[in-house]
């Protein structure tokens, strides 16, 4: 059996008022302490290289999209968010997507597409905000997904660095 021993209250505590004043002094002091609120749209969230936001397509320095529409990201996507229609191009890489849609409402931001891509053409950007007025507007096409390589460089460097960790020396 547990016997709870209650603390005997002193007279000052029984009178309430001294304790009330003590509590009031605490809250009064707290009023002038620094605020923890983040004024979100004006003060954006801190973004680091690890930030895994929405997937974006890399546009190389020659203004051409790096994607060759191999379809590996489409296959890797666990949420079936990616739709690719391939097509030919006169450039050296011969193929490029005619249509590359990511349904941002389905995308779960897992980053599998980034891992699957053999051409380093798709990366998880640090863009986090996703809001619009219709479902249709949230199916992003190539034009909405294109980003210059420089904008994604932080993430690209990070992924390369991490990938190096797993490289094993060839047995041959």
């Amino acid at each position: 059996m547990v016997i709870v021993k209650r603390k005997e209250l002193s007279l000052a505590e029984k009178l309430y008022l001294p304790e009330v004043l003590r509590g009031l002094s605490v809250t009064f002091r707290k009023m002038f302490e620094p605020k923890v609120t983040r004024q979100y749209p004006e003060e954006p969230l801190p973004k680091t290289e690890v930030t895994r936001g929405q997937p974006r397509l890399v546009v190389n320095e020659d203004d051409a999209i790096a994607c060759v529409s191999c379809g590996l990201c489409e296959a890797a996507c666990p949420a079936y968010a990616i739709t690719i229609d391939g097509g030919e191009t006169d450039r050296a890489i011969e193929r490029e997507p005619k249509r590359f849609d990511i349904d941002m409402l389905r995308c779960i931001l897992c980053g599998f597409c980034e891992e699957a891509c053999p051409k380093d053409a798709i990366y998880m950007s640090d863009e986090l905000e996703l809001a619009d007025y219709s479902r249709e507007a949230l199916i992003y096409d190539i034009e909405k997904l294109k980003r210059p390589k420089a904008a994604l460089q932080k993430r690209i460097d990070y992924v390369n660095r991490i990938n190096k960790r797993w490289q094993t020396p060839s047995s041959t």
């Binding site: 707290k30 009023m31 302490e33 923890v36 609120t37």
Partner: peptide
């Protein structure tokens, strides 16, 4: 306002 300030909010 005051409730916010007392709770470290704005």
């Amino acid at each position: 306002k005051f409730s916010a300030w007392m709770q470290y909010r704005i």
